[in-house]
Structures are given as structure tokens and as C-alpha cells.
């Protein structure tokens, strides 16, 4: 049975997934990307092979995605993260019609059909507002690590709105809030709500439909899910596999390409 690999080389982390023909995930791995994209992709791929007890010869097709998708020479193809996240979200939640992908350096909103094909999308990859790095900056200003930040967000009773859109200017605003005696958990939740607002603005541009699935690294953050659901006024799909949606979509589309290639020859 042929196995494909999907490698999602993101700005923050690189994810690798191995998938069989039935779209069953055989291995999933996440490593920090760092400055060397090819190295990160190789490391994630090798770890995934070890996890599934497979050799690289067992992999029939390698599809890359994410911002570093051109940086892994052994790939068979590269596919945009928009296409991959849409397919991956559909694999995780078959009822998906909207996808929100919030990563370290970019956020995207897609409207998809019943097969997970993209009908419309909007993205922001120019600016840290509405992406994971925004939270990292806020955490730094509050002298917290990301784990503490997430825990704090869930404690908030009166979220403190953050008016700055820019992550760097928001950092100064946060310091002012601390000086004025505002509670850290309220500032943290305010930061989550700020990202939610930015991302949902993208979603409204593509049109909100049931069901909305959250993918990307920030899907791991319960404070983010809470902020999104509160701002949107309804529940969003997420799971601990949501961060692998891009890699899953790539591996899935790898099978599709492989079948088409097989059919032609």
C-alpha cells in the first residue's frame, strides 16, 4: 500500500505526516523550524519515518507546503498552504465549510466546498497582527512563557482591550496597562481577543458558514479558541491534530497526484 509524506515547513514549526491510501495518518511529528528550513524538513521527515518504522524508500510521494515549501529539494511537489489546510481541515472535520489557519507569522481564512476545495480565501502574512508572534511579544512584555500566557488567558474575568493593531506598539500598550495596575490575565485575554478580531475580519471577507474549523499552531491554545468562539458567537472545530492540518492536506493531495500519475502511465 503506497504511503505519502506531507511536510509543512512553517515559520514557527515544521510538521511532517505520513499517510496511507485510506487517508489514515501513520506518523505525525512537529519540530521547531529555526533558520535552516531544509534541515528542519529533513529532521521532521526522518522522525516521522522512525515513528512509523518505515524507510524513505517506502514513501512514494513527498509533498511540501508552508512558507518554506520550496526549501526541501527532495520533494515531488510543493502545494500552497491554503490548499493544504483546506483539505486537512476537511479530513479532520468532514462538515468543514470554513477554515481559519492561525500560524506563527500568518493567518488565513478560507471558505471551502464539501470536498475541501478552496472557494475563496483571505490572508495576512505581512504583519504580526493576528498571528502567533503577536502573543509571543505580549508574553515577553509580561515576562511570561507561552504556557503561562495561555493559562492566564483562561483566568480573565474582565478582558482589557488592546487598541494597537501592531504587535510592537501593543507591547508598549501592555506595559502601560501594567503600570496602571491592570491584571495580567485580563491583558493576556485582551491580546487573544485582538488576534480573534483580526482573523475573524478575514473570515467575514470570505463569508462565515457552518462549520468553522481552526487549524495551525494557535489551535493548540485554549485561550485562542475561547477568544474566537466568544467573538464569533459560535463554536469552532479544533483538535490536537489541528496543527497538522497543512501536512495532512499535503500528504492527502500527494495520494491524489500519485493516483493520477499512475492512471496516466
Amino acid at each position: 500500500m503506497p504511503v505519502t509524506a506531507g511536510i509543512d515547513i512553517g515559520a514557527g514549526t515544521t510538521k511532517a505526516v505520513l499517510m496511507d491510501e485510506q487517508a489514515a495518518v501513520l506518523a505525525r511529528v512537529s519540530v521547531r523550524t529555526g533558520p535552516f528550513l531544509e534541515k528542519a524538513a529533513t529532521s521532521a521527515f526522518e522522525k516521522a519515518l522512525r515513528q512509523a518504522s518505515l524507510n524513505s524508500d517506502d514513501i512514494e510521494y513527498v509533498a511540501t507546503t508552508g512558507y518554506g515549501r520550496y526549501s526541501y529539494p527532495p520533494r515531488d511537489i510543493q502545494i500552497t498552504e491554503i490548499t493544504c489546510h483546506a483539505r486537512g481541515a476537511r479530513l479532520l472535520f468532514p462538515g468543514t465549510r470554513c477554515v481559519l489557519d492561525i500560524g506563527a507569522q500568518s493567518s488565513r481564512a478560507m471558505r471551502v466546498d464539501e470536498e475541501g476545495r478552496v472557494l475563496k480565501f483571505r490572508m495576512n502574512d505581512r504583519c504580526a497582527a493576528g498571528a502567533g508572534r503577536f502573543l509571543e511579544r505580549i508574553a515577553k512584555a509580561l515576562e511570561m512563557d507561552l504556557r503561562q500566557l495561555v493559562a492566564a488567558s483562561l483566568e480573565s474575568k474582565n478582558p482589557q482591550p488592546i487598541s494597537s493593531i501592531c504587535a510592537v506598539l501593543a507591547e508598549s500598550e501592555v506595559i502601560n496597562h501594567i503600570t496602571q495596575g491592570k491584571r495580567a490575565e485580563d491583558i493576556v485575554m485582551g491580546a487573544h481577543l485582538s488576534i480573534a478580531e483580526r482573523v475573524l475580519a478575514l473570515l467575514r471577507q470570505v463569508g462565515v458558514e457552518e462549520e468553522v474549523t481552526l487549524t495551525g499552531g494557535l489551535s493548540l491554545n485554549p485561550g485562542m479558541v475561547k477568544a474566537l468562539e466568544e467573538t464569533l458567537g459560535k463554536e469552532v472545530n479544533f483538535s490536537k491534530e489541528s496543527q497538522f492540518a497543512g501536512a495532512m492536506g499535503a500528504a492527502y493531495l500527494g495520494h491524489w497526484r500519485l493516483q493520477r500519475r499512475g492512471g496516466r502511465s
Binding site: A11, G34, P35, F36, Q105, R126, C127, A128, R133, F134, R137, C166, A167, V168
Partner: peptide, 18 residues
């Protein structure tokens, strides 16, 4: 390639690493 202060920081770190 970036102008965002936060992204330029990552871009600088990548260039230094290379």
C-alpha cells in the same frame, strides 16, 4: 522582504544564522 518589525527580527536572525 519584510517590513513588519516582528518579522524583520526573525529575518535578521535567519540571515545571521546563514
Amino acid at each position: 522582504t519584510n517590513v513588519c518589525t516582528v518579522f524583520v527580527e526573525s529575518e535578521i536572525i535567519s540571515h545571521l544564522a546563514r
